[in-house]
């Protein structure tokens, strides 16, 4: 069902990232099989699935933690293999994990540049360029439409949605072209989730390809351009927005068949 598979893409139409028949085994366990979809610049590809559907494995394949057992990844139309997360990162694929890799007691600007601090000065006087760090942090957050009162405040005082947006802004600043978001809205209330969805739209409008992983079709549908549905490691379909309604997504996510079977089973106690 992958749009670009099998035929040469028109210039400017090449997806940033494309998956063709990706599969991943752990020993004899098939964690993923036959996954195809594409991520385009300025679009959001949503990966929907329940717990255990293979979302985490798919993230790890895309971010270079695991090598796929079958199938091929294409970056800008050329086949790529990532042997380490660093390689994926260098290729511009940034992953924002659920725990965000932020230190609550440290200020926003210190967190923003953690591990990649800009320096100034020479020899023993080489030091953390605090002015630049604060300045860039404020500018990058403002570009995302994030209004931070004070970049000196500890990250721990931010709300969950604000933390997500800082993590997204950080990934964008450090050169991400493809942004993978692992369940960014799952731990949030309705209002906070709306804030994060707005930032996802912001990142999309800046020309990034976004992979939005979620189990909530109500969050996915408004912002998504493409929907990949996973169930037990297999693709239940890869749809463009025009091909699917929110009701259909919800229905497939809830597992219409499974639910009716479950209803039957629960209705007949003592069945084998």
């Amino acid at each position: 069902m992958s749009a670009a598979a099998g035929r040469p893409a028109a210039p400017g139409d090449t997806p940033l990232l494309e998956l063709r028949d990706i599969g991943k085994d752990f020993g004899s366990v098939i964690a993923l099989d036959g996954i195809s979809t594409s991520v385009r610049a300025g679009q959001v590809t949503c990966v929907l699935g329940d717990n255990g559907a293979g979302k985490s494995t798919l993230i790890k394949v895309l971010s270079g933690v695991h090598r796929p057992t079958r199938g091929q990844l294409f970056l800008d139309g050329a086949p790529v293999d990532f042997d380490a997360p660093r390689e994926a990162l260098d290729a511009g694929i940034a992953t924002v994990y659920q725990d965000l890799a932020m230190i609550p007691l440290m200020s926003i600007w210190r967190n923003f540049f953690l591990g990649s601090e800009p320096t100034t000065g020479w020899g023993p006087f080489r030091r953390f360029d605090r002015a630049t760090a604060k300045d860039v942090t404020r500018r990058e957050l403002a570009a995302m439409g994030i209004d931070i009162r004070d970049p000196d405040q500890p990250v721990g005082t931010l709300s969950g949605g604000e933390r997500q947006s800082v993590a997204i802004a950080r990934a964008v600043h450090f050169g991400a072209r493809v942004l993978i978001l692992d369940e960014p809205t799952s731990a949030l209330g309705v209002k906070q989730a709306a804030v994060v969805l707005r930032y996802i739209a912001q990142a999309r409008d800046q020309g990034l390809g976004v992979v939005f992983i979620t189990h909530n079709p109500h969050h996915a549908h408004p912002v998504g351009d493409r929907f990949l549905l996973l169930n037990r490691g297999r693709s239940m379909g890869d749809f463009a927005k025009a091909e699917v309604t929110r009701e259909q997504l919800t229905d497939m996510m809830a597992g219409g068949d499974e639910l009716s079977r479950l209803a039957e089973e629960l209705g007949r106690p003592g069945a084998p």
């Binding site: 230190i103 609550p104 440290m106 210190r110 540049f113």
Partner: peptide, 19 residues
């Protein structure tokens, strides 16, 4: 407060895995 190393000290003590 003024060097990269200082930033790493805070980070390592705050959350070693994340840092």
């Amino acid at each position: 407060l003024r060097t990269r190393f200082g930033n790493w000290v805070f980070a390592t003590g705050g959350d070693e895995v994340a840092s």
